[in-house]
Design a protein around this nucleic acid. Structure first.
Lengths: 238, 238
DNA sequence: TAGCGTTAAGTGAGATCACACTTTGATCCC
DNA sequence: GGGATCAAAGTGTGATCTCACTTAACGCTA
């Protein structure tokens, strides 16, 4: 593994065969947004317009718009006198800020979801939970993170609140670059699966309070590991 | 008053003397964002790249980035096969969605604010409230909306939660184009000032529950008028 | 060898141009 | 007179180029 600081995120991306019918800008945006949520980029990693354009095989124009959008979402930030865009390095205050917003909104979304969710949706969510459990057993961080996001997204989507869903996704976008390191915390997998099992059971029981409690526990536990990751990186980065 | 559909928002903007040291894109973004929050543009109004660039005296490039950012914020949306950007026309479902997010987050921000707010800040907020009362007496919608946003912003800012503040601002951005019409509802000023007086008193008493209740009442009342405005415009627009 | 100044490479910002597409309005034909 | 057709204007999209600036590396001098 060479030059993880620079190429890690890009290696997973590839040249990105552009689908016609959709704008290049939208595809680049979606692609990078997903990559950020999935933690393919590290906090502090710089994203160059020309490099990105070269990797993706487009010109700089659509890349710039996509990156600007991500900046607006809080997924990137301008840094230094060079105005280069980089993955934000969160402070502890910002992390607490995001945690509390997540507690409010994801708890609320979970409550709404109980009222509307169908048996079919619950089955799909159970599948995601099972996939997560397998990934945890194999200690496969990639698959774990992917199915974790999938699990939560499926629950919140059941609330049928597009705006709320968008705001929640924005919070995940901000913490995405941190979670990949957080899952390496001791007992993270075990504690995390505990919450998810509780959530799954609450869904089956259609118990709104229990689901909310499970989500709250999951977010709170994760925030502790994220905070620890933050302190750990504090010395090395920047 | 000629051609209110097209030029209303632009007339208030003017050529926008660009300050150097900041990027044109950032200034255009800030300018249009403020205009949207203040309700200078109407729902459904189309925003053309070249027209905007011409009015602002720049080329199309920075305008495009600014508009793309606003799209990402939910302040604009692509519309039609022409992919023209326009001010979104909210549905009733989206409006309820936004209202509930506001209830959660602004209520939470108000609770946090009580713990941190200083006497000096309370005085400034009282000034904003007084200005709002004058504007209500004069039925001056412009000044009323401006000081209303100022009033709320000052309270939430006291919570010292930048991310939370950003999300709340995003919600105001989405409802901005509607509120100008909503304030024309009968008794809107009176009902609204009622909530604001309660909020101001709660701040003086440093009573978190009372402040939250006042904010909740304000948002709920406003949502009713916004919904009515929505139904009213339903026939005419689109 | 340490420090400084210069140079080269890389960065984002913004203007301009060509292109494909949609919309619109006028003209022409039935 | 009414409807279809075609042309013109307007739209966003994306590529390319220049510019000002920052950064980092190299070589030179003391």
């Amino acid at each position: 593994m060479i030059n993880t600081q620079e190429m890690d995120g890009w290696a997973r991306l590839g040249p990105l065969a552009l689908r016609e019918g959709e704008t290049a800008q939208a595809q680049i945006y979606a692609c990078l947004r997903e990559a950020l949520i999935s933690g393919y980029f590290q906090p502090g990693e710089e994203i160059s317009l020309r490099r990105t354009a070269a990797v993706l095989g487009t010109s700089v124009t659509p890349v710039r718009e996509a990156l600007r959008q991500l900046e607006s979402d809080g997924g990137l930030e301008v840094w230094g006198g060079n105005r280069v865009l980089r993955v934000p390095i969160l402070t502890e205050a910002e992390l607490n800020d995001i945690r509390d917003i997540r507690l409010e909104l994801e708890g609320f979304a979970a409550t709404l979801a109980i009222e509307k969710i169908t048996a079919a949706q619950i089955r799909i969510i159970a599948n995601a939970c099972a996939m997560m459990r397998r990934a945890a057993d194999e200690r496969n961080a990639d698959r774990y993170l992917e199915s974790n996001w999938r699990f939560h997204k499926l629950i919140y989507r059941a609330a049928e609140r597009p705006v709320l869903m968008g705001v929640i996704e924005g919070m995940w976008l901000r913490v995405g670059p941190l979670i990949r390191h957080a899952v390496t915390s001791p007992n993270h997998f075990a504690r995390s699966m505990e919450s998810h099992d509780l959530a799954e059971q609450a869904l089956r029981d259609r118990d709104a309070d229990a689901l909310r409690a499970a989500i709250v526990k999951d977010i709170s536990d994760a925030a502790i590991d994220l905070g620890a990751t933050l302190k750990q990186n504090e010395g090395g980065a920047d």
